[in-house]
């Protein structure tokens, strides 16, 4: 009974260690992605400057949904 308990405890320790390693790995990869995205900051500045240029997409999408509300035959498309 004691041996069984010891085995379980060992397994739990191993799993906890693996989980910790996975968490560290995930954190590392997430932070690498964040650093890479920050390096593209100029592109995001441009997106801010061109914010009104993309509004037509929003209008189109919204009008489509608005139209579909009053035309029950037309299914609403969720993207």
């Amino acid at each position: 009974m004691n041996k069984r308990r010891q085995e379980l405890e060992q397994r739990i320790t191993q799993l906890e260690r693996s989980l910790e390693q996975l968490k560290t790995q995930l954190k590392k990869e997430t932070e690498t992605d964040q650093h890479q995205a920050i390096d593209q900051l100029e592109n995001y500045f441009n997106e801010v400057d061109d914010r009104f240029a993309h509004l037509s997409d929003f209008w189109g999408s919204m009008l489509e949904e608005f139209h579909s509300i009053f035309n029950s035959d037309t299914p609403i498309e969720h993207k």
Binding site: E47, L55, M62
Partner: peptide, 9 residues
């Protein structure tokens, strides 16, 4: 307004 630019995704 900036976020609305992502409407298609």
């Amino acid at each position: 307004i900036v976020s609305l630019g992502h409407v298609k995704q």
